[in-house]
C-alpha cells in the first residue's frame, strides 16, 4: 500500500512545531499504529501515551486533523491520505512532550468530589437490591474511560482556561453517576454549583459529540444536574420554605 505523510507535533512546554514523517500504510491501520511505526522506524523518542489499543483505557487521546480522537480507534481508511495527516496533543492541557499532555488537573478535580456514600444495606447479609431499569442511566455514565476528550473540546476549558472555576464535562458525568446512583445518600448539589461551576456550561453539546463511548453527556448528565441545582438553590418557593423552617 501507499506511503503516507504524517505531520506530528513535536516539542515540550517551551514550544514546538509540526514535523513530517512518512511511513507505509497497510490495511486496517489506525492512527496509533502509524505513530508506533514511525516511533520504531525513525523517531524512537517520539512521546505518545497509550495502553490498551482497543478503545477501553482512554490513554491515547490526541487531535487528529484537528478533531479530538482516540488514536487507537481512528482508522486511517476513514481519513484523506492524499493530504498529510496532522496529529497534535490535546489543547486543553499543558504539553509534557510531543503528543503527551499533563492531565493531572483532572485527578485533582475528581478528588474534590464527595465520594460514594451508600444507604444501609437492604438485606441482613449486607447486600442491596436494585432493579436493572433503575441503574441503566448510571451504567451509561460509568462507561466513561476517562480519555478527557470531552474536557479537551469544552470551550470553557479549551478557550477560556477556566480550570479553576469549572470541573468540565467529565466531572459532570462523574457527579451525575454518583447523584443518580440508587444507593447513594450524599448531596453534591451545592458543590456542583460552587466548586464545580456547573453554570458555566451553556449546552453546546461539543462534549457529547466527541465522546468515544457515546455517552449522552449533555442531555443525560449535565442538564438533569442543572435542573436539580436550580430546584435546590433557585426555586423561590423552596427558598421561602427554608426561611420558615429556620
Amino acid at each position: 500500500m501507499a506511503e503516507t505523510t504524517f505531520s506530528i507535533w513535536r516539542g515540550d512546554s517551551g514550544g514546538g512545531e509540526l514535523q513530517d514523517f512518512t511511513t507505509e500504510v497497510t490495511e486496517g491501520m489506525v492512527v496509533l499504529d502509524a505513530v508506533h511505526q514511525i516511533q520504531a522506524e525513525s523517531a524512537n523518542d517520539l512521546a505518545v501515551r497509550w495502553n490498551c489499543k482497543a478503545g477501553k483505557c482512554g490513554s491515547c487521546s490526541a487531535e487528529v486533523n484537528g478533531n479530538p480522537r482516540l488514536m487507537c480507534m481512528t482508522r486511517l481508511s476513514d481519513l484523506d491520505l492524499d493530504e498529510p495527516v496532522t496529529i497534535e496533543p490535546m489543547k486543553a492541557f499543558p504539553v509534557m512532550r510531543d503528543l503527551v499532555t499533563d492531565v493531572s488537573w483532572n485527578y485533582k478535580v475528581k478528588k474534590k468530589i464527595k465520594k460514594f456514600k451508600p444507604r444501609a444495606p437492604d438485606s441482613d447479609d449486607g447486600t442491596w437490591r436494585m432493579v436493572q431499569d433503575d441503574i441503566d442511566r448510571v451504567q451509561e455514565f460509568r462507561k466513561c474511560i476517562e480519555c478527557y476528550l470531552c474536557q479537551d473540546v469544552c470551550h470553557v476549558l479549551r478557550e477560556h482556561h477556566l480550570h479553576e472555576e469549572f470541573a468540565g464535562p467529565r466531572f459532570m458525568v462523574y457527579s451525575a453517576a454518583l447523584e443518580m446512583h440508587p444507593l447513594d445518600t450524599e448531596d453534591r448539589l451545592a458543590d456542583l454549583k460552587d466548586d464545580g461551576g456547573i453554570g458555566y456550561c451553556n449546552i453546546t453539546k461539543c462534549c457529547t459529540k466527541v465522546c468515544p463511548e457515546g455517552i449522552t453527556i449533555t442531555d443525560n448528565a449535565i442538564i438533569p444536574l442543572k435542573e436539580r441545582v436550580v430546584d435546590e438553590h433557585y426555586d423561590p418557593l423552596r427558598k421561602l420554605f427554608k426561611i420558615f423552617r429556620k
Binding site: 515540550d12 524512537n44 523518542d45 512521546a47 505518545v48 509534557m96 512532550r97 503527551v100
Partner: peptide
C-alpha cells in the same frame, strides 16, 4: 537510545 530523558519511549523500552 536517542533523545534525552524526558518522556522517551525508546529509553523506557
Amino acid at each position: 537510545v536517542v533523545g534525552n530523558r524526558e518522556y522517551n519511549p525508546g529509553w523506557h523500552a
